[in-house]
Simulated assay, not measured.
Amino acid sequence: MVSRARLKSVLTGLALYAMAVAIVGYFGVNAYTGKYGLNARQELDQEIVALTSELAQLKRERARSEQRVSLLRTEKIDPDMLDERARFQLDYVNPHDLIRTISQN
């Protein structure tokens, strides 16, 4: 028969091991699924790739816009660009312009 003191020491040891396993398990699960875990790192890497490609596209778009704006600067106005923008904004067509309409059949 096991004495009460021996049973208490065995149960105390088991309780300590169970607590240690629970703590290690908690940190292990959080290391994998937590806010800064392995899954989150993979998602962040995918987001970095997507945002990098979007940034490159926006830089190209900005360069095109800056090139068009540079043609409208007062130091060196491109007459064709000025005429195009004025006609577009005023919705104006010169009566001497030839307009070709393309119908889709």
Rank of each mutant, 00 (worst) to 15 (best):
R85C: 09
R60G: 13
L90H: 13
R85H: 02
N39Y: 12
R87M: 01
A56V: 01
Q46M: 06
E61W: 02
L38N: 09
I48M: 11
R68F: 04
F88C: 07
V49N: 05
E47N: 07
L51P: 05
E61S: 10
R60P: 06
Q42C: 06
L71N: 03
L44I: 08
R64Y: 08
E75M: 05
E47R: 07
A50N: 02
M81P: 05
G37H: 02
E84G: 12
S65K: 13
K59L: 01
D78G: 06
R62K: 04
Y36T: 14
L55F: 15
R64C: 10
E61F: 01
V69K: 15
Q57A: 11
Q89L: 15
E84V: 15
R62I: 08
D45Y: 04
S70P: 14
R73F: 00
L72F: 02
L71C: 10
A63I: 01
L44T: 01
D83H: 12
K59A: 00
L90I: 11
M81Y: 04
D80V: 05
Q46L: 02
Q57M: 09
L44R: 12
R73L: 00
K76D: 07
R73C: 00
R64I: 14
Q46E: 02
L44N: 05
L82R: 04
K76I: 03
E47T: 11
E54H: 06
I77K: 06
E75L: 07
T74F: 07
